[in-house]
Design a binder for these strands. Structure first.
Lengths: 222, 222
DNA sequence: AAATATTTTTAAGTAAACCTAAAAAAACTA
DNA sequence: TAGTTTTTTTAGGTTTACTTAAAAATATTT
């Protein structure tokens, strides 16, 4: 129905629209898509003609209902395939993005729901990101950052705010993944590092402020 | 590395080359790809420039070693994905072709082998077609047609020569699939129909000559 | 072997999706 | 508010992959 390129733009518009208020700008889209501003203008004209987006010159773009539906479906497919690649094929969370980026474009009326059933109806992907359901509704997830924890509090990692392979691999080396529980022992004043204790693994770690501001956590008692 | 279109042409050239002797012609390729002769000429020039095929004007085309390697990899991926779709997602053998046609183009150095391991290293796809291994070697399969059976012989279905959804759905309705065993009771002189007995299901069937010439079988004793 | 028919290629053009360079609009700032 | 900077659009060009129409080469027939 639509080209992979069109679909990728729709997904990018959705991502930027969910992140910030107001219209999505040409420049922001160019950065997100790793392309040039003229290429974006070109595509926005096409998406507008197909009634997938409303585009106003020199102002910005927003998705139409149909555009939103398609973009949400793509996010759903992407995240379901990521679950498949990690749970069934044994890939690591830092390896699956590029494959899912291709797999999400595979077109078939039943494939997504068959895959969903095969995977046991997951609601979050391997990075803790919510998987919208077939009606386009998003499950909610705590959006508190590890950096906002108070000393003595215990929390479990439920997501990452930075999806780069570099960060994910760094977490691998630190032994931190989804579900890892951490107790904030001390906040170092000098550079805002966090000294944390991992009760399950009985070891302590020093986490940089940047790491702490890239991890979503959920407060857990005891 | 290569576009989906280039890959599809390579696969089509391989398919035609394996079917018939001599060079693959522009016309045959156009028919196989559902496109026009000028489009084929255009693509053959490009494949030739990239050393994926050797193309001689007004004569025909053949794959180079690299072209053969790529085409074989695509067939491997296609058939492994077909196994996945039937075995894991529960699709029927007449539903999987179009999806596999898209999935085979997903690029990743490890994906194919991970999938292969997950599926338990299958050597034949849901239609009984051989899956080339990672070295490009093809497992062999009996190439005897059901129509060549002698009266009284018992054979098991091991493949189909016609992959159309229409034929596969016809077989579904007849209750015939891979592994189905048949005993040739009588060959009807009038229209070459075959009257067969299915020992496992304890029922008899009349199969048209066209069906009989579209099924590969392996003779089995008793 | 000449005429005819078929196949294939060349020529010319289209649409998608990109690019760079230049122009125009919008946003800052002094 | 006038000038400067930044952002965005327009203009013009590229490649891929297709198209139709015309020309050329090959094959077939008489």
């Amino acid at each position: 129905m639509y080209t992979s390129s069109e679909e990728n733009y729709l997904k990018a518009i959705l991502k930027l629209a969910r992140k910030e208020e107001g219209p999505v700008t040409t420049g922001a889209l160019a950065a997100e898509m790793n392309t040039t501003a003229p290429s974006v203008t070109d595509m926005l004209r096409r998406l507008s003609e197909k009634n997938l987006a409303t585009y106003e010159k020199y102002y910005g773009v927003a998705l139409t209902e149909e555009g939103l539906r398609i973009a949400t479906t793509l996010v759903r497919r992407h995240r379901l395939w990521e679950v498949f690649l990690t749970q069934k094929l044994g890939f690591q969370w830092d390896e699956v993005h590029d494959m899912a980026e291709q797999l999400e474009h595979v077109q078939h009326p039943e494939l997504t729901e068959r895959l969903n059933a095969f995977l046991g109806y997951p609601t979050f992907d391997p990075h803790g990101d919510p998987i919208p359901n077939a009606q386009g509704e998003w499950p909610s997830r705590p959006h508190q950052l590890l950096s906002s924890l108070a000393t003595g509090q215990i929390a479990a990692v439920v997501g990452v705010d930075d999806h780069s392979a570099a960060f994910l691999q760094h977490l691998n080396r630190l032994g931190i993944g989804l579900g890892t529980r951490l107790e904030l022992v001390e906040r170092v004043e000098f550079d805002l590092s966090l000294y944390v204790h991992l009760p399950e693994q009985n070891r302590n770690l020093m986490l940089s402020d940047k790491v702490a501001r890239s991890l979503f956590v959920e407060i857990s008692n005891a």
